[in-house]
């Protein structure tokens, strides 16, 4: 049933929020610390486990997939209730922060790509030409 998916999603979200609240309390911050992130990890682990044991059927899945599809509309509604007027007064900063973050990360993509490749190529080379000491 679809409600199983929705229910599971709600349990994960609530549990994540609880973990975040408790963590915030433990560290002494009046805030929810990473609740959404914990909920996401929990949902990933639980659905993976349930799927493996065959207890998570496509119908239940629809209860989660529906909300995934609602994510952009919810963000649109969220955007529509922000204090944009206030943000515009600080205009250039938001634009500069966005532009610089994009450019710096984009420029580093070939570097990160090469790190992985080098490791893989090295591993393959070691397999192709095994050396005497066997130290990898």
């Amino acid at each position: 049933m679809i409600i199983y998916g929705v229910g599971l999603l709600a349990i994960c979200t609530l549990f994540g929020a609880l973990v975040g609240d408790v963590l915030g309390l433990a560290i002494g911050v009046k805030a929810n610390v990473g609740g959404v992130g914990f909920a996401m990890l929990l949902l990933l682990l639980l659905t993976e486990k349930l799927k493996r044991s065959g207890r998570f059927v496509p119908q239940s899945e629809q209860g989660i997939v529906f909300w995934t599809a609602m994510y952009i509309p919810v963000v649109v509604a969220m955007a529509a209730q922000q204090n944009v007027l206030g943000a515009v007064k600080g205009g250039p900063m938001a634009i500069l922060a966005g532009v610089l973050a994009t450019v710096v990360c984009f420029a580093l993509i070939p570097v990160i790509d090469r790190i992985g490749l080098a490791r893989r190529t090295l591993a393959r080379a070691a397999l192709d030409h095994p050396t005497g000491d066997g130290a990898a």
Binding site: L9, A10, C12, T13, G16, A17, G35, V36, A39, M40, L41, L43, L44, L45, T47, E48, E61, I64, V65, W67, T68, M70, Y71, P73, V74, V75, V76, A77, M78, A79, A80, Q81, I112, D113, I115, G116, L117, R119, R120
Partner: peptide
């Protein structure tokens, strides 16, 4: 609709699009 409750709910649901085994395949560079 755009409040904290539904926002967090929808964001958590997007995790379902990914699987741990796929993430492992992604390797070190990922």
């Amino acid at each position: 609709l755009g409040g904290a409750m539904l926002r967090d709910f929808a964001i958590v649901s997007t995790a379902y699009g990914a699987t741990l085994s796929d993430m492992r395949k992604c390797g070190v560079s990922g």
